[in-house]
Design a protein around this nucleic acid. Sequence first.
DNA 1: ATGCCTCTTGGTATCGCTCCCGCCCTGTCG
DNA 2: CGACAGGGCGGGAGCGATACCAAGAGGCAT
Lengths: 338, 338
Amino acid sequence: MNTPRKAPTMADVARLAGVSPMTVSRAFKRDSSVSEATRETILKAADEIGYVFDATASNLRSQKTDFVAVTIPSINNANFADTLRGLSEGLKARGLQTLLGYTDYDIQEEERLIEQLLRRRPEAIVVTGGRHTPRARRMLQNAGIPVVETWDLPEAPIGHVVGFSNALAVRGMVDHFVAQGLTRIAFIGGDADRDTRGSDRREGFIAAMRAQGLDPSRLIAAGAPPISMREGAAAMGRLLDTLPDTQAVICVSDLSAFGALTECQRRGIPVPDRIWIAGFGDYEIAEVSVPSLTTINPFPREIGARTAALLLRVMDGQQEGPATLAIHPQLLIRGSSR
Amino acid sequence: MNTPRKAPTMADVARLAGVSPMTVSRAFKRDSSVSEATRETILKAADEIGYVFDATASNLRSQKTDFVAVTIPSINNANFADTLRGLSEGLKARGLQTLLGYTDYDIQEEERLIEQLLRRRPEAIVVTGGRHTPRARRMLQNAGIPVVETWDLPEAPIGHVVGFSNALAVRGMVDHFVAQGLTRIAFIGGDADRDTRGSDRREGFIAAMRAQGLDPSRLIAAGAPPISMREGAAAMGRLLDTLPDTQAVICVSDLSAFGALTECQRRGIPVPDRIWIAGFGDYEIAEVSVPSLTTINPFPREIGARTAALLLRVMDGQQEGPATLAIHPQLLIRGSSR
DNA sequence: ATGCCTCTTGGTATCGCTCCCGCCCTGTCG
DNA sequence: CGACAGGGCGGGAGCGATACCAAGAGGCAT
């Protein structure tokens, strides 16, 4: 039963309710300055003719969209999904809607995405990571809206920052393993620099090993980031084949770490008795798997929640300059490393 | 270096480029009826003054937003994320952008969400599931845009459908187990009807057991849907405590099935030798875990891709009436059940 | 009764882009 | 040489809501 005739507008509602379009507008805005009786009349009239508020017109005239643009590397990642949840729940309370795009871990794609998103005139933009193409940086700087970079602590932030140092987080893990007496430690990650957070973790591993005076060359590249459980398993296979005396392996994510663990199980190699395994992210599987996985919790949900709170402060004018909120990832020692 | 002055408009670009605003508009629309030389002049001028196309004005005047609204139960679910990827990739090719919202498995929340989304004037709307509040149904019916219900085969579709029967898929699993000679089969799921797909699977289990003349009462309710790995593990614990002679358990999802598997591992109960375990969804973990998990692949990516293709046909006027595209889930027998 | 304040309502002019229509210029053909 | 087609471009109006200004009604203190 689609109505083929044109969709009703506020003017139609106003005519039926016997008021001016302006009053209809106020009624829909929950503006206090319209009497309860009129509002009810109006809403009933609107319902009767099936009026649906037209946000496109509102957006243009009021120069407000109630959009907050968000770019994440991948939707299919529980960590980023958590950040997005924290963010969108915090924003929903203020009637702000997230306008989401995926970059596929590619800063070229991010550039295209940012351009598309900015055309929609969001009131703020949240990006994942601190590395962008020059043009993307320029667009963000000139957008005239609050910008938040997350999941990183960039050296030259564009605007606000809510994140942590991926390199330092991994260093904490390395230092812990070394303090336990281990020396032959490997790292499993992706084979390209597309995933900047993954690269940062690998670089952090290398720097930490060097700082400890240890050999940082046990590096296994497992495929295009983000690497999967399967790829983690395959990488573990290569590691066991080529460097069988490895005592511990740090994986770029819990997913690859779990894959690595399963490869050990298939080969009958006991974890942690023969080799320790650690991941990153504190995904649910890290806690549930047998043995449970040593990992790092970067508090993804908090990143989102604090970003939302920050944006609300900025929009309220309660935040003066650009803010940098440092998140402190937590090292979680579990069954796979003791 | 935010420019405090007003953002430039097409008129500003036109003035600088020495053409009319109309020509600027055509240049940005990649309209063929503007010479290559003029287009270049215009784009250079636009870049020079930092012009950003204003989609809000375009949306209003052209009555087109290039939005396709999408509701999914949760962003933190690899199956729905896959559907969303298939969908948004298919739509991106035509310049359509997905406008996403999460219902949290709640049809009340879905109703609110649909209202918000329709205000943005999307050109089509894709919802997950076939059960909605009466008001949500009405809004969808009267929206005057293509509607697609997915992940289900509703008896009274609102418009188009791309999905499968959750109940029949589970029946296939039950029938397979029975054909293997098992009779004492349990089901682990959520404890509420919020997750309609989960409920459909449980009902499918009960119906299938009845049809086989078997007892369908081995039901464990594990918590609020969607149930997690942890909850799956806890449910398995309860099942082993209360009904230790159970021969096989079908879980509402691979995640809970994996949790159940880990509980068996912790208790030293061999899978599949003592008990079989099956999940639903063919998440990556089902293939990687040791043993790998018997499951059902509903082809989530294809649901999204076919939805996108369908919508493009509809928008091109190549699709006459409402279409129902049935997806045929695949039963995957793996190590956890043989 | 007058002044003033608050609450509620209305009229008008846009917000920035694009639909629609028309004009000019060039090239081709009878 | 005039007619005509078509590509390239411009002018004016309008998409549907709201910012802004103004005004009437009612209440209360002076």
